[in-house]
Design a protein around this nucleic acid. Structure first.
Lengths: 189, 189
DNA sequence: CTGCACATGTAAACAGTTACATGATTTT
DNA sequence: AAAATCATGTAACTGTTTACATGTGCAG
């Protein structure tokens, strides 16, 4: 399981509440992991019981109280152990690819609709990652930031997310072009 | 659930046994879905009970008997329904990205080892996808094949798999270069 | 006064992985 | 003789998603 490690990684740089970790999983962390609020709360409870994170109650006047968590020494050691183990190969697991695999047997119009939807979504996500990257590197240029910036980890994972979404977008548009061209030319002609 | 749809898509072009579907999930289909033999057998049993695939017993002399499955009209209709629904956004879910996210707090040497491992793995997978693509398009050039070839679906998904693995490889190598450069220069210097 | 953001969970259903189980044939 | 391939599963466990549950404060 790597959800626990994703949560630990998200807590490394700052103390966060369960709610804030959930938010992190919806923006920056979204390039490499995804989790629902319920999972995050459950995982934080387990991590606390095992001593890998420590929570402290923060009483708030205008908002419901919250618990802020930080990674303990044990948590960091756990991350170190995790990093030392061979990483499982990752693969794409995508509804859209299943649909395109079956494209020759399905209605092209419908599929083209789904592909254009996804292309637009990927493009929007790419734009938001670009924005995030600009914020992270500030006024430095990229090479300078990567060489001497503090915390390049989040920057590098965000870069991967950006490339991934760009590739998604480009592939979707290319598949659309192929399907449209074939509709005109027809296979076997 | 899309495992059922991935299985249906794999059976569209040819009759296959559970074992052969498992093999398909280990090579070509691997770019868009992944499944263990147990899952495949269980899913085929369910699909047959629901009338989405039809199995027939094939008695073999030298090998254990096997059951070959084909997609029924109901199965094709199910795929069509699936294709018409909005596809869930896909995201990366990768142990290595979690590790890189935490890179600033971890031992670089260990991480570099994992990244080089993955780069080699991705490179090998990319090579095997390139080979698969060559086999699929035969002596035609790509544009010609995409315009007039039969069954471009598997080709297009394999192309996505190839781009994905190339991007993985390149990203891993870039991260290694960054970590090595920082080891020399040191952050904040 | 409606909807969104804050804040935290429980319960049930579904999907995926790991371990176990069996047994024949073909290749090295 | 050992290892890989063919061929098919069951059982237990772990992880993920969906649905439900609750309550406050602020902005439009």
């Amino acid at each position: 399981m790597a959800l626990r490690h994703a949560v630990l990684a998200a807590l490394l740089d700052e103390e966060l509440s369960g709610y804030q970790v959930t938010k992190a999983f919806a923006v920056g962390v979204a390039n490499f992991w995804h989790a629902l609020p319920q999972q995050v709360y459950a995982e934080l409870a387990k991590l606390e019981k095992e001593g890998l994170v420590a929570g402290r109650e923060v009483v708030q006047e205008t908002r419901p109280n919250k618990r802020l968590f930080r990674v303990t020494g044990g948590g960091l050691a756990e991350l170190e152990r995790f990093a030392a183990a061979v990483a499982k190969p990752s693969f794409l697991r995508d509804d859209l690819l299943v649909k395109v695999q079956a494209a020759d047997h399905l209605d092209s119009e419908v599929l083209i609709g789904r592909l254009l939807e996804r292309a637009a979504f990927a493009d929007a996500k790419a734009a938001s990652f670009e924005q995030l990257l600009r914020v992270m590197r500030g006024d430095r240029d990229e090479a300078e930031f990567l060489l001497r910036g503090a915390r390049v980890g989040p920057y590098l994972t965000c870069r991967r997310g950006l490339d991934f979404e760009r590739a998604n977008r480009d592939w979707c548009r290319e598949v659309v072009a192929v399907l449209r061209a074939r509709r005109g030319a027809g296979p076997g002609s």
